[in-house]
Design a protein around this nucleic acid. Structure first.
Length: 251
DNA sequence: AGCACA
C-alpha cells in the first residue's frame, strides 16, 4: 500500500454518532501532526470507516504505525493508507477534477433495505451475572493485566481489547467532564498502577485515589481526552472478575 | 465488509 497523507481507518464502532467519532478521532490522531480534515459518514456503505487527512505524509505514517489496532470505543482500529488522494489535497495542488455524480441503482436500494432489516437490534445493556467466583486473584494479576495493557505492542494486528464495557453505570451523570470517576478498583491496585494505565491516553494529568475506598479520580486536560480514556479503558479487566467502571466525575 | 469527498 503506497504511503498517502490520508489514512483509511475501518472497523470503527458504528454505534457512535459520526460527529462524536470525528471529534474523538481528531483527539487521538492530532497527536501525530496537523490534520486537514476527517471524513466519516453514516450511510450503510460508509459507516464504520473514516479518512484522516494529514498535512504531512510522515504524520500519517507515524500514526498508522503507532495506532494500528488501537482499542477505540471497544474495537481495534484497522488503519491503512487511503487508496486515492483526498479532494481537499487535490484541490490544493491543482490536480482536482470534478467527479461524475454517481447514480444510485435500484438494485443497491434493495440491498440496503435487506441489510438494514437483517441488522440485529442493539443488545440490551448487559446485567449479566458476574463470573463464578474463582480462587481469589493473586495480587500480581492486576499488575500483569496493566502491564499487558500498557506494553501493548503497536505492531500486532489483534490488539488486546478491554472486555466489552458493562453499560451498567451506577452513575447516571453523563455530563462530559475532564475528570473521570473510576469505580471497582481491586484492593491490590495502587496509584502507580492506575497512572500507568491512564497515562497512555493523551492529556493525562493525575490519578487521585481515595484512601479506604475502591474509587479514584483521573484528571485530563480536557473533557474530550477524558472521554477517549473512558472509552478506551471502560470495562478494563483488572482481574478476570473485576472490571473498571468509568464515568465522568460530577462537576 | 465496506476506499469518500453533501
Amino acid at each position: 500500500m503506497a504511503a498517502n497523507q490520508t489514512l483509511y481507518v475501518n472497523n470503527l464502532n458504528d454505534k457512535i454518532n459520526v460527529e462524536t467519532m470525528k471529534k474523538s478521532l481528531k483527539e487521538v490522531f492530532a497527536a501525530f501532526g496537523g490534520i486537514i480534515d476527517i471524513v466519516a459518514m453514516k450511510s450503510l456503505k460508509r459507516r464504520g470507516q473514516a479518512w484522516i487527512i494529514f498535512k504531512e505524509t510522515s504524520a500519517a505514517t507515524n500514526s498508522l504505525k503507532s495506532l494500528q489496532g488501537f482499542p477505540f470505543y471497544n474495537k481495534p482500529m484497522r488503519i491503512g493508507y487511503s487508496r486515492s488522494k483526498s479532494d481537499v489535497v487535490a484541490k490544493a495542488d491543482g490536480t482536482y477534477v470534478e467527479r461524475p455524480k454517481k447514480i444510485v441503482k435500484r438494485e443497491d436500494l434493495r440491498k440496503a433495505k435487506a441489510a438494514s432489516a437483517a441488522a440485529p437490534a442493539a443488545p440490551a445493556p448487559s446485567f449479566a451475572a458476574p463470573p463464578a467466583a474463582g480462587p481469589a486473584a493473586a495480587p500480581s494479576i492486576v499488575q500483569k493485566n496493566i502491564q499487558d495493557r500498557i506494553g501493548w505492542n503497536p505492531n500486532q494486528t489483534a490488539a488486546p481489547v478491554a472486555a466489552a464495557a458493562p453499560k451498567t453505570m451506577g452513575n447516571v451523570n453523563a455530563e462530559p467532564n475532564k475528570t473521570l470517576f473510576v469505580e471497582n478498583l481491586p484492593v491490590e491496585s495502587t496509584e502507580t498502577m492506575m497512572s500507568m494505565l491512564f497515562r497512555q491516553y493523551p492529556g493525562f494529568q493525575e490519578v487521585r485515589t481515595i484512601p479506604g475506598r475502591n474509587v479514584a479520580f483521573v484528571d485530563y486536560q480536557n473533557e474530550y481526552q477524558a472521554g477517549m480514556a473512558m472509552q478506551g479503558l471502560q470495562g478494563f479487566a483488572m482481574t478476570p472478575e473485576v472490571k473498571l467502571l468509568l464515568t465522568y466525575a460530577k462537576k
